[in-house]
């Protein structure tokens, strides 16, 4: 087989996983190429700014090290997102510990996110950023997974550990708030 990008482009995630189990490391490379950028977007939506490449790499390493436990009742991407989210939370806790601060809470996450919004240079993008920043962390997570990743509510629910119906409500509330925010600017 030649370039992994060509021979694996048609293979499903499940087929690539099977090939990786068979000892073909090129399947792992193909899976990384397929999902890395989505993980980067997801990490950014969680408020991460620094070391996203390291975060994505760690996510894949964790995933491959425990791929035997992956059950196909959700998509691989959903599973990767859950791993990535746990790593992000772990990072934030470590940062809090270093600063002798209390446990991560959503209020802190919002503050960090808001503080970085002012750095957006382009005005239209800045308006969108500010609108998204007004969402609660959960609304933002659901909204981002729906809009940037095109995920069905069932998969989103697995990532955010909620229900499909609740995710649907979070999405529509988020969309309504963003519309209001954009029209106010």
């Amino acid at each position: 087989m030649g370039d992994p990008k060509s021979w694996t482009s048609e293979a499903t995630d499940a087929e690539l996983i099977a090939q990786w189990h068979g000892g073909d490391q090129r399947a792992a490379t193909a899976l990384v190429h397929r999902h890395a950028q989505a993980l980067s977007r997801f990490a950014a939506s969680l408020g991460e700014r620094d070391g996203i490449d390291e975060l994505v790499q760690d996510t894949f390493v964790r995933a491959f090290q425990s791929l035997d436990s992956f059950r196909a009742d959700s998509s691989l991407r959903t599973w990767l997102f859950t791993i990535c989210k746990r790593l992000v939370l772990d990072r934030k806790r470590s940062e809090r510990r270093r600063r002798n601060q209390v446990e991560l809470d959503e209020g802190h996450a919002v503050a960090e996110y808001d503080a970085l919004d002012g750095m957006v240079a382009e005005e239209a993008a800045g308006r969108v950023e500010r609108a998204v920043a007004k969402l609660t962390p959960l609304q933002r997570e659901v909204f981002t997974l729906r809009v940037t990743e095109g995920m069905p509510y069932g998969e989103i629910a697995k990532v955010v550990e909620s229900t499909e119906g609740a995710c649907r409500v979070h999405y529509h509330n988020a969309m309504k708030l963003i519309k209001e925010s954009l029209s106010d600017d």
């Binding site: 490391q25 990384v32 950014a44 939506s45 996203i52 390493v61 491959f64």
Partner: peptide, 20 residues
């Protein structure tokens, strides 16, 4: 587009090598 642009572009090949 805005949300996607916010995420940094990764050196995916380097990540893939490190992961493998």
């Amino acid at each position: 587009q805005v949300l996607a642009a916010r995420a940094p572009q990764l050196d995916v090949s380097a990540i893939a090598m490190a992961v493998t």
